[in-house]
């Protein structure tokens, strides 16, 4: 998945080649489906949500300046859309261990992944839902502090300090033995 492909497709769409938007949809629907599942338990609702996010992104495409990553820009739209439509009944579903399971990975990596996931989820449980979403966007969706701050409206220092604490817990929870079984740490 390349940022260059995204920027090229955005330019083509803005120049009138609407079909180029399909490339953006293919590259980013997975991440948006995963994010949508945090807010909607029903699969059909998640797909409707993803469709609406892509439609909003298409309408606002001219405002994407290519300075940041398109994936983070889309996640920002998704976060705000989800919060807006679930305002009255925000129930942020925490990621479960199976959601981050890689069936192609060896068993040791699966154990590591589960343990890391459990630790971050435990840290998320201690926070109000909107701050928990910041941890989710950082650890599971790879957004940066600035991107999370822009998307959620939380001050960047608040985002950074909560994530730092969660990282500290992650570091404490994962034993060296477990990691050594998966990777060469030297």
């Amino acid at each position: 998945m390349s940022q260059d492909d995204d920027v090229a497709d955005v330019k083509r769409v803005l120049a009138g080649d609407t079909a180029a938007f399909a490339g953006i949809v293919r590259r980013h629907q997975g991440v948006l489906l995963a994010f949508g599942r945090r807010f909607f338990p029903n699969g059909a609702d998640v797909e409707d949500f993803v469709q609406e996010v892509f439609l909003q992104a298409y309408r606002r495409l001219a405002t994407f300046r290519g300075e940041g990553r398109l994936r983070s820009w889309l996640l920002g739209i998704a976060y705000n859309h989800a919060v807006r439509i679930r305002r009255s009944r925000v129930e942020y579903a925490l990621p479960d261990e199976t959601a981050v399971e890689d069936h192609t990975a060896d068993p040791e990596r699966t154990v590591l992944r589960r343990e890391a996931c459990r630790t971050v989820v435990r840290a998320m449980r201690r926070l109000p839902q909107r701050l928990a979403a910041c941890l989710d966007l950082y650890f599971f969706f790879g957004m940066t502090y600035d991107e999370i701050s822009r998307a959620t409206g939380h001050p960047v220092n608040t985002v950074r300090s909560h994530i730092r604490r969660a990282k500290q817990r992650l570091r404490d929870a994962l034993s060296d033995d477990l990691l050594e079984g998966c990777y060469d740490l030297s």
Partner: peptide, 30 residues
Amino acid sequence: AKLRFAMMALRSPERRRTDDELTGRIMAAV
């Protein structure tokens, strides 16, 4: 390395999956 690998492990590989039917539906709306 410990922090880097732990964070790498959290990025789910299933997010790269694509659904052609959903892509078609989205593109029809677009």
